[in-house]
């Protein structure tokens, strides 16, 4: 604090702090708090708001239950409320997206940080960044086009003779997962690359010199060192995936509904902001719980991630 005052003077310091607080309180905390508050109130006609029926209740949250459908989770059949089913699958497939981005980003970041010569690094990073210049909407549409029934993927596979008739790719959750992986893989790559780069290459050589095969060097030396990077990448990809509305909406796989689409339906089509808010907070709560549990299991602390 004193450092800031000395460096920037009183005027500038208080302006910065004021703007930060404005952003945090007015633009983040207050709207969210209002939403949280309204999630506990019933959806009423305007006249009755503030009237005798406007009392705090958990009814909005309980709306997630009801309308039971058959839930087939890897061969395990049991009845489950339709919305809970979407909710569970959203969290599950966000985890799948996170896992796939990790599997893709780990070898690539190792290659970038430890194998490739520093001279070609700027070119490679540029190649990685170029797709980000295109908006997420267009990139999602690109995947939609690739995966459609008469799209380039089916045409290509049929031309080379791998398949004899078109495959319906846009079905279930896989097209959503594929597009989310493509959209968010860099959020895993960069923290992983940073972590990988901070590893002293001598440690890799030392393990090699002591007789370790490459996989043991990765398992015992490189992977543990990268844990904070993996954790921060995973949290980002998981949260972004679970909260993504755009990608599932554009891919529009009728059998692959995302929970954000449910929330959107209630809020915009049903005009029931109270129930929508309740669902949004449930999603936030469960994502936070999932992340905390994962961090506990893999023994990473928040301060590791902040590094």
């Amino acid at each position: 604090m004193n450092d800031l005052l000395r460096r920037y003077g009183k005027g500038l310091t208080w302006t910065f702090i004021g703007l930060t607080f404005f952003w945090l309180i007015i633009l983040v905390v207050l709207p969210d708090f209002k939403l949280l508050e309204s999630s506990f109130r019933p959806y009423l006609p305007v006249k009755e708001i503030g009237g005798p029926k406007d009392v705090y209740t958990f009814n909005n949250y309980l709306q997630i239950f009801g309308n039971e459908v058959d839930f087939n989770f890897f061969g395990l059949h049991f009845p489950l409320a339709a919305r809970v089913k979407v909710f569970v699958l959203t969290i599950f497939y966000s985890g799948v997206v996170t896992l796939i981005t990790f599997i893709l980003a780990y070898p690539l970041s190792f290659y970038l940080a430890k194998v490739v010569s520093p001279k070609s690094l700027p070119t490679l990073f540029l190649l990685l960044f170029v797709p980000l210049w295109v908006s997420e909407v267009l990139r999602s549409f690109a995947w939609y086009i690739i995966l459609t029934l008469k799209g380039p993927l089916n045409v290509f596979l049929m031309t080379i003779g791998v398949i004899s008739e078109e495959i319906r790719w846009i079905d279930g959750y896989s097209p959503v997962v594929v597009t989310l992986v493509y959209a968010y893989v860099l959020f895993m790559l960069f923290p992983l690359y940073n972590a990988m780069q901070s590893l002293d290459s001598n440690q890799i050589e030392a393990a090699d010199d002591l007789g370790a095969p490459w996989w043991r060097t990765h398992w015992r030396v490189i992977l543990p060192h990268c844990k904070p990077g993996i954790a921060s990448g995973a949290v980002m990809v998981f949260m972004l995936s679970a909260g993504s509305l755009l990608v599932p909406a554009i891919i529009n796989s009728t059998t692959g509904n995302w929970f954000t689409q449910t929330i959107q339906g209630i809020m915009l089509e049903g005009q029931d902001w109270n129930a929508g808010a309740a669902f949004a907070f449930m999603l936030l709560l469960f994502c936070t719980i999932a992340v905390s549990v994962a961090m506990r299991v893999f023994r990473v602390s928040l301060s590791d991630i902040a590094k």
Partner: peptide
Amino acid sequence: QRPNQRPTALIFQNLALFPLM
């Protein structure tokens, strides 16, 4: 022969101990 196949052990200038073990 790869380093992990040779009967040598190298002590690095910065020692390269594994800090997480």
